[in-house]
Design a protein around this nucleic acid. Structure first.
Length: 102
DNA sequence: ATATTGACATTTA
DNA sequence: ATAAATGCCAATA
């Protein structure tokens, strides 16, 4: 009773990321208190509400965009529309847009 | 109950 | 530089 699944906590965290800012799978995992980074990707691949839960704002630590339910191209388009500058499918300086969760 | 999965990250070759 | 191996762990089957 009252316990929220890790998955729902994950979605809650991501719902806080504002437009134009991004974070990483690693950051989300660490905020959840786990090191199984892949689990975050698993949760997001089953994102039930892509509008309220802006999972396109979660990218890889190395600047690659990572995956997306509606395709990587769509994810790139969304990020660009929010002002994220990308060079060859990669984000140059994550730091510039990084949103901390922990 | 056990086995596999995943939109990752780090280390090693 | 690229590629493979390894660690991670709740959720899913």
């Amino acid at each position: 009773m009252g316990d929220i699944s890790l998955r729902d906590r994950c979605y809650k965290l991501i719902a806080r990321i504002p437009r134009g800012r991004i974070t990483t799978y690693k950051e989300v995992a660490e905020a959840l208190g786990i090191k199984g980074y892949r689990l975050v990707g698993m949760f997001l691949s089953r994102n039930p509400r892509p509008v309220e839960i802006p999972c396109h704002r979660v990218v890889k630590s190395n600047g690659d965009v990572g995956g997306y339910i509606f395709g990587v191209e769509k994810k790139i388009e969304l990020l660009r529309s929010e002002g994220i500058v990308m060079k060859n499918r990669k984000i140059e300086n994550l730091q510039r847009y990084f949103f901390r969760l922990k």
